[in-house]
Each structure stands twice: as C-alpha cells, then as structure tokens.
Design a protein around this nucleic acid. Structure first.
Length: 739
DNA sequence: GCATCGGATTTTTTT
DNA sequence: AATCCGATGC
C-alpha cells in the first residue's frame, strides 16, 4: 500500500472527524462543508492508517452514485487493495443481505423487488378483493399508511387499530403482504423491514454481520427512518464503531418516515459519542450563505449554525417576479442564454430547481422552444416508461415465473388475444392446481389436453403459444447473458413493430428500449439477477451523468447533495413552495423551509429566486402570492430584477440549435410582443358576480366570481345541482337567466 | 376481446 | 393538460 497523507488539505475539524478514535462519532456537517470528502478520507484512513480490512467496513450512502464515487476515490487514494468495502444505499445493502439469508425468510433468494407501479396495483387488488371502495380508500393513501407502518417496523398483525380506517388499512396490509409473498416479491420498505427484523430476532445472523463490520459509516444520517436506524444499531452492535454524518437542517424526507431527531437520539443512545461540527463552507459565497441562514433560522428548536466561507461576498441574489409560470420558465431560459452569450458561464453550470415534478414541464417547453438542450432528473423517469417496464417485465417473468404482475403486464403485450377473461380463468385454474399462473402457463404446452375443458379453444391456443415462448426463454436464461435474453425476447415478440408505430412517439419509445439494451450490455459478465436488482434500486440521481454540458432540471429533493455554480429556484409562491399540502402542519412547514434551504445552499456563485404573479394549478391560471419565505430574506441581500413587463415568449426554435457556439444565443433573447392582457382585453365580462345563469347540463346556478384571463372569461358558479364549478365562458354554454 | 370516446379527477417530495 | 376509468360499439 502506498503511503498517503490522509489529512492533506483538510481543516482542523475535518481532520478530527477523519482521525476520530474508536467508538461512536457524530459529524454535524453544514452544507458544502466537505462531508463527502470527510467520509471518503475516513474510509481511506481506516484502511490505510489503521489497518482495517476493506471487507470489514460498511458505508451507507444516499444514492448508488455516491457509493460508486466513494469507492472510486478510495481506490484512487489507496489502489486496488482498497476494494471490498461494502458500499451502497440502505436498500441495496439490505437486498444483498436478504438474498444471502433467504433461508431465514419466507422468501426465495431470487425474490423480485416490486417497483412503485407494482406496489400500487397490488394495493388496488387487495382493496378490491376486500370489497372496499377505491374512491373512499385511496390506494395511494392506504399504501402510504402501510409504508409508514413498515418504516416503524410494524408487521401486519402489529398494526395499531384505533379508528375504522386503521381497521381497513390493517386488512389491506395483511392481504397486501400475503400477495407479495405469493409472488416471491418484496417492496422497497420490506427490504429494510425484513433485514431489521432478521437482525433483531436472529442472534446468530446479527452477530455474523455485527462482528464482520468493524466500522459502520452512514451519510445523510438526518434522513434515516426508524427501520434504518435500527438496522444501523444492529449492524454496529458488536464493535460499536459507528460514524454518522448528517445535518438536521437538510432533513427533507419526513414524509417517508425519516426523522431528523435520530440525530438527537444518537447522542442519547451512544452517550460516549464524539461530536464534530463542520461549519466552514467551501461551496458558496458568503451572501448566498447569509440568505440560507436567514431562511433556516426561522425554524424553531434547532441548533444554530454559523456558516462561513472564505470565498468572499459574491454577488447579490436575484429576485425575479414573472407575470405567470410560462414567463417564469422563459425568464430562466433567457437568463441562461444571456449569461452564456456573454461568456460568463457554461451551459453545464446551471440548474433549475422546483418543488413539484409538474413544474418541469413548462421549463422543458421553454428549452424545447428555444431549441436548447437540457437534462432532466427524475419525473417520468426512464424506468417508469411503459416500454421500459414492458421489457423489464419480460425479463422479470423469465427470472421468476411466479411473478404475477410481470405476467399480467406481458401476457398480452403485444396483444395476442389473451384478455382479462382468459387471464382470470388461468388464475382460477392455477389456483385449483396449487400453481402460480406463470407456473401453469409453463406446463400448458405439454398438458394442453388436460385443460381443454377449462378454456375456450381460442384462448387455449393463445395461452399455449405464449407458454411455449416463455418456457423456451426460461430454458435458455441460464446460458444467455441478460443482453442476449433481451434480444431473444424482443425478436420473439416482435416488440419493435409493436412499439414503433411510425409516430414520433413510437420512435422515441423504441429508442428507450435501445437505451435499456445498452444498459443490459454492461451486464455481459453478470447475472440477470444482478441486472434486475440494480435496475430496481436506481435512484434519480444515479441516472444523472455528469458528462453532458447542459443545464440540469430537477426537484429540490433530487438536488440534495449536488452543487451548481448558478442555481434558479422557481415557483417561490405560497402554495407551491411552501406547498399548500403543508400549510396545516407546522412540522411540514418547517420541512418546506428546509427544502428551500437545501436549494439555496446548492448554489456556488449565483442564485436566482423566481416566482410568478399568476400560476396555473389545474387548468386555468390564478393569481398567486409570493412565498412567505421570501419575507425572511433581508432586503440588502437581494437585487430585484426588473419586474416582468415584456411578455417573455421565446422565439420559434431556429432548428437544432445546441449550446456549442452559444455566441448567437443572445439573438433569441425575448423580443417583446405584448400579450393581449397587457393591452386592452379583447373580450368583455359577460357574467359578473351575482348574476344568475343557466348551464346546458348543470342547470341553474349563481356566479360567485368571474375574471378575464387569457382572452377568456373564467367563471366560478354555484349550481343547485352539482355545487361549485369553475368554467370557461368560451367552452361552457352559459346563458344569463333573468330574475 | 379490443378500440374509442367522454367524463372525471388530478398534483408533493422518492428508495 | 394529462391521465385514468368506465361505457359503448364493433
């Protein structure tokens, strides 16, 4: 092992953290304080200076990408001999443990991890099986309750019942869990739940891992939930060397059970904890830090931190109020183009952040309109696309024929004459024979005669046809690489002609399939199992390649842990940020504030805070208030950019423009064309508040409110028949009813 | 069994 | 605006 100075370039606090002795260590790390660096150096220090074997180190990161980076850096410092650290997200690490320990579980080691959609449809099926009304018991909400229970390590029979709803949730939970097991499947929460329970209840297994992992390190500790916290405790229970890094102010996953109070609990549970505070910031200018502190200091019950930097004052933060959300997006794109045009920045320097995924659409349109490239993190994620899910479902089905959901997804995609009815019969038949539907399907080709009675001739031949294909794939799955299996499936199903229907969308879809194919190609040497697992556990950030020099669009949540020279935070309106769903709940409001804090502290040099005077929620635009958080920012830190007079409308795309040679970018800076509503309205109000109207389907009603917008009249009417409705006068056939 | 249409409903954040 | 669901017709 080559000699390395593990403390190179570290400040005293960082050094203390890296070289902390045995026992529990808690590093409270402000944003940009070099915590990733500390974590990496700590691992290197343990191996290189303390002689710990890599195999005996466990490091939990928030994303797979962070894990890969850490491994790369440690190996960069110490060379190949440093390989072998157990590195990954909680979910990935748990999946590995569970596969190894499957004998102690009600699962086969080749269990599948159900994604969001699978989980959702499973819950829906459980609800419908229990004859409950989906309208009243929303699958999403029920699933949320189940998920919370799992994060608190509550099994179905331990689910506390206080209300009738709890009773319902419990019944669904029981059924849901049965169904998962029947499919040899787990959901995301199960990975944590099963592992935590296993370590808790099985002393032999617990000691095996606890002895092995001499050192346990965790990043983003403030975002651990109960299950994760308990996991850590068990894993560190033998050596007690637990090294946790976190920042309570950056806790933004409360809604999925994360509890920043785990930071406080840590000090209680481990009284001997050495605490290290990292306050010096190496990322942002002082003015940006001052804004961040002004925002976060309003949260009660927190340890005040004083963030400082030697990067200098920097420029003031820009506050821009756009006319509406379209103009907001246009402002972002225009500003980016201008700065690039002036050679003050490169395209890859920019990020635009927002509260909800839906907000990305207008931004995308603005970029598209300008003909400029961008990259989007998350949203309709790659793995969420229909075509990608189809192909993965085929692979999953081959891997695990008991997976009913993959069967359901693939059996008639592309259409091969197997509808709901036939599938239903297949299910009942399978149940009679004590088989899974997939299991029966595999036998069907050989045993067709036996099942003549159950199916119609047409259905049977369709099923036999598919069963044939499936068993031939299964037979070859062992020999073929994931890539070749995928190719076989694509050609056997003629998937290309099914998905690529000649439209542009079809073409894009096929491109996505090809992208998946490229990913599979990286698994030549590895098993189908590994491919499927990695795919199931990728996070949004994992898919973010650093290479492309283009602006990044992402949610504030996805921005955690990242940094950009120039950051736009858009949608700074009450109702959006803070989100209206949080208004009622003070804890949730504090989290909204932390979310903004995370966003602000991503910026290195320049920060733009943007909001809109009007914002469209469902269909129509509505006036919106500026975010209350803006009130907390001292005026001297802000430079208000000119109010949004020109109606930003990016020029039509000048075809295939890219960021390279961006000198021309300023050309398409907004040429202002006043919007209709800037000049005199073209239409007149016809239905003033108080007027009585008649609607063709809803009958009589009274106008409560009416305003002119986008060349239309938007009217809120209270109907005797259906109550309050909002209609556009141009669409609804409204008549004034004389009194 | 499947495609199409219209209406209702939707939006918080994610491994 | 976009998706999802159920009803309808072929």
């Amino acid at each position: 092992m080559r000699p390395v100075n593990f403390l190179d370039g570290l400040n005293p606090q960082q050094q203390r953290a890296v070289t902390a002795g045995l026992g529990p260590v808690l590093v409270l790390a402000g944003p940009g304080s070099g915590k990733t660096r500390v974590l990496t150096q700590r691992v290197a220090y343990l191996i290189g200076a303390m002689g710990v074997r890599p195999y005996q180190i466990l490091a939990v990161t928030f994303t797979n990408k962070a894990a890969r980076e850490m491994e790369g850096r440690v190996i960069g410092l110490l060379g190949e001999s440093a390989r072998g650290v157990t590195l990954g997200t909680f979910h990935a690490i748990c999946a590995r443990i569970l596969r190894r320990e499957a004998e102690h579980l009600p699962l086969d080691s080749n269990f599948v991890i159900f994604d969001d959609d699978d989980q959702h449809s499973l819950v829906r099926r459980a609800i419908s099986e229990l004859n409950l009304d989906e309208k009243i018991y929303r699958p999403q909400a029920i699933h949320g309750s189940i998920s919370n229970a799992k994060n608190e390590l509550l099994l179905p029979d331990e689910y506390p019942v206080q209300t009738y709803r709890d009773e319902v949730v419990k019944r669904v939970y029981v059924r849901y869990q049965q169904m998962l097991l029947a499919n040899n499947a787990v959901d995301f929460d199960d990975l944590l739940l099963y592992t935590a329970k296993l370590l808790e209840e099985n002393q032999v297994v617990r000691e095996k891992y606890a002895r092995r992992y001499e050192h346990v390190l965790v990043d983003e500790f403030q975002d651990t939930n109960q299950a994760q916290y308990s996991l850590l405790k068990h894993l560190a229970s033998f050596h007690n060397n637990i090294f946790a890094v976190g920042d309570a102010d950056q806790s933004i996953y409360r809604w999925r059970g994360a509890d920043y109070r785990n930071v406080l609990r840590f000090e209680q549970d481990y009284p001997a904890t050495q605490v290290v505070l990292l306050e010096q910031n190496y990322r942002s200018t002082q003015r940006i830090l001052d804004i961040a502190m002004a925002v976060i200091d309003r949260n009660p019950h927190r340890k005040r931190k004083h963030l400082f930097t030697d990067r200098g004052e920097g420029v003031k933060t820009f506050l821009h109020q756009a006319y509406d959300d379209r103009a907001e997006a246009a402002f972002v794109v225009d500003t980016i183009a201008t700065l690039i045009g002036r050679k003050q920045a490169q395209p890859g320097d920019f990020a635009a952040m927002y509260r909800t995924n839906a907000q990305s659409r207008l931004l995308e349109e603005a970029f598209l309109h300008a003909g400029l490239p961008y990259k989007l993190v998350g949203a309709q994620r790659f793995y969420g696309r229909r075509e990608v899910k189809d192909v993965l479902a085929y692979l999953r089905l081959v891997h695990n024929p008991n997976d009913e959901f993959s069967l359901g997804r693939t059996i008639n995609t592309p259409a091969r004459g197997i509808g709901d009815k036939t599938l239903q019969v297949l299910r009942t038949q399978a149940q009679k024979l004590n088989l899974s539907p997939g299991g029966l399907l595999l036998r069907l080709p050989r045993e067709a005669e036996t099942h003549r009675e159950a199916f119609t001739a047409r259905a049977l031949s369709a099923l036999v046809g598919f069963g044939d294909k499936l068993s031939s794939w299964s037979a070859q799955a062992g020999e073929l690489s994931p890539l070749h299996l995928l190719d076989r499936i694509l050609s056997d199903t003629d998937y290309h002609s099914y998905i690529d229907d000649g439209t542009e969308e079809g073409h894009d879809r096929w491109e996505n399939v090809m992208e998946l194919r490229r990913l599979a190609a990286e698994y030549q040497e590895r098993s189908l199992n590994e491919f499927l697992e990695d795919v199931a556990l990728v996070s949004d950030q994992d898919t973010l390649e650093a290479s492309a020099n283009v602006p990044t669009l992402l949610t504030l949540h996805a921005a955690k842990g990242l940094e950009f020279p120039i950051v736009f935070i858009i949608g700074l309106n009450d109702g959006t940020l803070p989100h209206s769903r949080s208004f009622e709940d003070p804890e949730a409001m504090q989290e909204e504030r932390r979310l903004l804090y995370v966003g602000i502290t991503r910026a290195k040099d320049r920060l733009y805070l943007v909001n809109a005077q009007n914002r469209s929620t469902y269909g129509y635009g509505e006036p919106a208030d500026p975010s209350r958080f803006l009130d907390d920012i001292p005026a001297e830190l802000i430079e208000e950019s000119s109010p949004d007079r020109p109606a930003y409308r990016s020029q039509p795309a000048s075809s295939n423009r890219t960021w390279s040679g961006s000198s021309g970018a300023t050309r398409w800076q907004s040429s202002s064309q006043p919007r209709p509503q800037d000049s005199a309205p073209i239409i007149k109000q016809q239905f003033p508040p108080g007027s009585h109207v008649e609607h063709s389907t809803w009958g009589p009603g009274m106008v409560l409110n009416s305003r002119l917008m986008d060349n239309d009249e938007i009217v809120d009417i209270f109907f005797e028949s259906v109550g309050l409705k909002r209609v556009a006068a141009s669409l609804a056939k409204l008549k004034i009813r004389e009194k």
